[in-house]
Amino acid sequence: MADIYFTEDHEYIRVTGDTGTVGISEYAQNQLGDVVYVELPEVGEQFDQTDETCVVESVKVASEIYAPVSGEIIEVNEALSNSPSLVNDDPEGDGWIYKIKIHDDSELSGLKDEDEYQDYIDNLS
């Protein structure tokens, strides 16, 4: 079963088994504008839920990416080093940032599902 959840800071986590693929939402990439640099985390790093994991920089601003759940980084999207604009072009596909081994899947229940997230961003502007 694959499921996608969102945080109020606009990260998404796409869950397959005990692995989560993390990136920023379509809404977030649009707010951020042209991404020019992604400072990736390192494989093996451990994070608690809401820890700062890495940074996405647009021309205008640096934006921190927080861990949607606690876990260990098991893979990072090296393609972003040369093509950071993948985050703009396909944020929820090829523009993923890292994969995290989920330590406690009960943390997912505190996140928003797709419909709840849509309602949340509709009420932001």
Binding site: G33, D34, V36, S58, V59, K60
Partner: peptide, 13 residues
């Protein structure tokens, strides 16, 4: 306006 839809800072620059 910080940027315009369909353009963005990079393209506008």
């Amino acid at each position: 306006p910080v940027q315009y839809d369909g353009m963005g800072v990079m393209k506008e620059h």
